[in-house]
C-alpha cells in the first residue's frame, strides 16, 4: 500500500509541481522540431507539431488524475446517499429504488458517455459530473446491502428505542460501520475512472485537444506510431498504467488492512 501511495504521490507531483521545474509550454508549436526522439534537449521527445512531450505529459496528468479523483468523490457521495435511502426506506420504496438502479446499471457506461458527448460540450467540469453520475450505482447497491445487514443489529434497535432518528442512525452507526468498504470502493473507482477517461480521450470523447490528457496523448500517438515515434505511445501508456496500478495497490492495501481489523 505504501509503494502504491508513493507512486501516486509522484504522479501527482509530476502533474501539478512538474511545470514549475520544466517551464516549457505544452501548446507552443515548433515546426522545425517535429518528431524529435527523446534526448537531453527533449527529455520525452516531441510530437507531430513539435510540442514537447514532457510538458504535455505534465499538463495531461492534471485532467486525467483530477477528473478521476473528483469524479470518484461525487460517485461515492451519490452512491452512499442512494444506498442509505434505499436501505432505510420501507420495503416497497427500497424495492422500487433497487429496480431503478438495475435499469441504470443495464446502460453501458461508454454508450452513455458517447450519448452525452453528442449533446453537451466536453470540458473537465462536465466530464467530472458525467463520470461521477455514471459510476455510482455499484456502490449504491453495496451500501444498501450493508444497511440491510446492519439494520437489525441489536445496538441499532436499542438506539431506535431510545428515540434516535433515522438520520442519527445513518450518521453515527451505519456510516461508521461501512466506512472501510466505502473508502476501498472509492479508491477502486478512481482507478476505474482513470481508465474510463483514458478510453474516452483515446476515442476523442474525453478531454478535447489541444488540451493534453494521457488518454488523448495515447490516442494521438497511436495514429502516429507508424512513423516509428515509439515515445508518443510509450510514455502516456506508462503513466496510465502506473496511475491505475498505484490506485489498485492502495485499494487492495486498505482492503487487507481494514478487513484484518
Amino acid at each position: 500500500m505504501a509503494s502504491g501511495a508513493a507512486i501516486f504521490v509522484i504522479l501527482l507531483l509530476f502533474s501539478w509541481a512538474g511545470p514549475f521545474l520544466h517551464t516549457a509550454s505544452p501548446y507552443a508549436i515548433h515546426p522545425h522540431l517535429l518528431f524529435q526522439e527523446p534526448s537531453w534537449q527533449h527529455l520525452l521527445g516531441t510530437d507531430d507539431l513539435g510540442r514537447g512531450m514532457l510538458a504535455r505529459m505534465m499538463y495531461g496528468g492534471r485532467p486525467s488524475l483530477g477528473v478521476a479523483m473528483i469524479g470518484s468523490v461525487i460517485a461515492t457521495l451519490l452512491g452512499l446517499c442512494y444506498g442509505m435511502v434505499a436501505g432505510l426506506s420501507p420495503s416497497l420504496v427500497d424495492k422500487s429504488l433497487m429496480r431503478i438502479l438495475d435499469a441504470i446499471l443495464a446502460l453501458p457506461t461508454l454508450v452513455l458517455m458517447i450519448f452525452f458527448a453528442a449533446i453537451i460540450p466536453l470540458d473537465p467540469i462536465s466530464l467530472i459530473l458525467l463520470l461521477g453520475l455514471v459510476s455510482w450505482p455499484g456502490l449504491a447497491r453495496i451500501v444498501r446491502n450493508e444497511v440491510l445487514a446492519y439494520k437489525g443489529r441489536d445496538y441499532i434497535l436499542a438506539a431506535k428505542q431510545y428515540g434516535a432518528s433515522t438520520w442519527y442512525l445513518a450518521r453515527t452507526h451505519l456510516l461508521r460501520s461501512m466506512f472501510p468498504i466505502v473508502i476501498v470502493n472509492a479508491t477502486f473507482t478512481v482507478a476505474d475512472l482513470i481508465l474510463t477517461l483514458a478510453g474516452l480521450s483515446f476515442l476523442g470523447l474525453g478531454i478535447q485537444p489541444p488540451q493534453p490528457s494521457w488518454g488523448g496523448l495515447l490516442g494521438n500517438g497511436s495514429n502516429l506510431a507508424i512513423t516509428g515515434s515509439w515515445w508518443l505511445i510509450l510514455f502516456p501508456g506508462i503513466a496510465i498504467f502506473l496511475a491505475i496500478m498505484s490506485m489498485n495497490m492502495i485499494g487492495q492495501g486498505l482492503l487487507n488492512r481494514l478487513e484484518g481489523r
Binding site: 441489536d154 428505542q161 452507526h173
Partner: peptide, 24 residues
C-alpha cells in the same frame, strides 16, 4: 410516544455480541 418510550423504557437483548457497535 417515541420520546416517552425512549425515556421510560430500557431494553436489553439476547445477543451480547450484537448489542454494541464494534466500531465505537
Amino acid at each position: 410516544w417515541r420520546q416517552l418510550r425512549g425515556k421510560r423504557i430500557g431494553a436489553v437483548f439476547q445477543n451480547p455480541l450484537a448489542a454494541l457497535n464494534p466500531s465505537l
